[in-house]
Amino acid sequence: MGYPQRLLSEGERIDLQLRPHWKALVLPVIALILTVGIGAFLAAVAPSHGTGAEASYIAIGVVALVLIVWFTLRPWIEWMNTNYVITNRRLIIRLGLIHRVGRDIPLEKVNDVSFRHDSLLDRMLGCGTLVVESAGEHGQVELDDIPHVEETQREMATLISGEPAPQTRKN
């Protein structure tokens, strides 16, 4: 789902639409696999007859459901609702589903754009942290787990300089 065109100003166009890198979902997937595996194992070894058999199945199911919601579903929803949009005029940051946070930084107020790979894995995957320094009161914004961070930094620097972007990209 892309950023709604109706929220753009006249003459404004989207050059980049980004979400955090997919690596942010690796731990939630591992949590899901472990929860389902351990829950299935516990259900298999739980007593199937006698007092408390039904209660033990319910307890296993409830604990597994809570763990799946907290460690898998919640991070996935947060990932789906984190959007970084770079237009020819501004950087748009939208975070959250219920507690929604938004920030717009005009590109003319951006002083510097840099990136860093926080680990060897980040470098291998091509993701990293994009650091946007603006002349506003908030100063510096760090956008974590940006895919293709070097290309994004280069394209954003091109937009800031006023040159047309060579090619738009959607992630």
Rank of each mutant, 00 (worst) to 15 (best):
P4V: 10
L8I: 11
L8S: 06
E10K: 10
E10S: 12
E12F: 03
E12V: 04
D15S: 10
D15K: 03
L16K: 01
L16D: 01
L16M: 14
Q17S: 12
R19W: 01
P20K: 04
H21D: 13
W22K: 07
A24H: 01
L25C: 01
V26C: 06
V29Y: 05
I30E: 02
I30Y: 05
A31S: 12
L32I: 10
L32D: 03
L32M: 15
I33A: 12
L34Y: 08
L34M: 14
L34I: 15
T35F: 06
T35A: 08
A40C: 10
L42V: 07
L42T: 05
A43C: 06
V45Y: 10
P47F: 08
P47L: 09
H49R: 12
H49V: 14
G50C: 14
G50H: 13
T51D: 14
T51Q: 12
A53D: 13
E54D: 11
A55M: 15
Y57R: 15
I58F: 13
I60M: 08
I60W: 09
I60D: 06
G61E: 07
V63M: 13
A64G: 11
L65R: 03
L67Y: 09
L67A: 14
L67T: 05
I68E: 06
W70Q: 12
P75H: 08
M80I: 06
N81G: 03
T82R: 03
T87F: 05
R89V: 04
R89E: 11
R90P: 00
L91I: 07
I92T: 02
I92F: 04
I93N: 01
I93C: 03
G96E: 07
L97S: 06
H99P: 00
V101N: 08
G102W: 02
R103L: 11
R103I: 05
I105N: 01
L107G: 05
N111A: 10
N111L: 13
D112M: 08
V113Q: 00
F115I: 04
D118F: 00
S119M: 05
L120T: 13
L120C: 03
D122M: 07
D122N: 15
M124L: 15
L125S: 04
L130K: 00
V131E: 01
V132I: 13
V132C: 00
S134T: 02
H138E: 09
H138V: 04
V141S: 11
V141F: 06
L143G: 00
L143E: 02
D144Y: 03
I146T: 08
V149M: 01
E151L: 12
E151K: 09
E151G: 09
M156E: 00
M156D: 00
T158H: 07
L159A: 10
L159N: 02
I160E: 02
T168N: 09
R169C: 01
K170T: 13
N171G: 09
